[in-house]
Computed example of a mutant assay.
Amino acid sequence: MEDIPKMGLPELYKETGIKENKNHPGFLIFKAENVSNLIKSGNPLRNLNYGVVFFIEGDGEIHVDFNSYKTSANSVYFCSPGQVVTAKGEFTEGFGVLFQKDFLLKPGAQQWIQSLPIFSGFLSSPMVEMVEKDKFLFHALLREMELEYHSDVILKYDALEALLTLMLVKLSRLYEKSKGDKISVDAKHILALESLINKQFKSNRSVADYASQMFMTPQHLNRLTKKNTGRSVSELINERLIVEVKRYLTYTEMSSEEIAHYFSFYDNSYFTKTFKKAVGETPKAFRKRQKELLRVEG
Rank of each mutant, 00 (worst) to 15 (best):
E93S: 09
I259P: 06
F30W: 13
V128H: 03
N74M: 13
L141Y: 14
F54D: 03
F138P: 00
E33T: 05
L9M: 05
S195L: 08
E235A: 13
S184Q: 08
V296S: 11
L28Y: 00
L104N: 05
I4E: 12
M130E: 10
H24P: 02
E57Y: 09
S195Q: 10
K6G: 02
N47H: 05
Q200N: 06
R143P: 00
I154Q: 14
S115N: 13
R287G: 09
F215L: 07
Y13T: 03
L48G: 02
L28E: 00
I197T: 11
T225D: 12
V185Y: 15
I197R: 05
Q219G: 11
S256T: 09
Y77H: 06
I113N: 04
H189R: 14
D65H: 14
L168W: 10
K277C: 06
G8R: 10
L224H: 09
S151W: 04
I259N: 04
L193F: 03
S36G: 12
A87Q: 04
I39V: 15
G94W: 04
L164Q: 02
K19A: 14
F30Y: 13
L168A: 07
F265K: 07
F119M: 03
A278F: 02
S206M: 00
N222D: 15
E239V: 03
L236T: 08
E292R: 14
K227Y: 15
E2Q: 10
F122I: 10
I190V: 15
D186H: 15
R173G: 01
V128C: 01
L38S: 11
F66H: 08
L137F: 07
Q100C: 02
S68H: 07
L12Y: 02
A278V: 02
Y251P: 11
F78S: 01
E281A: 12
Y69R: 01
E194I: 09
V35E: 08
P283F: 08
P81H: 02
P126N: 09
T16R: 15
K199G: 03
S72W: 05
F95H: 12
F99K: 04
K170T: 08
K22S: 13
L196Y: 08
F95D: 07
L28D: 00
E11F: 06
L9K: 02
R289A: 13
H150Q: 10
R240P: 11
H261A: 12
V84I: 15
L236D: 01
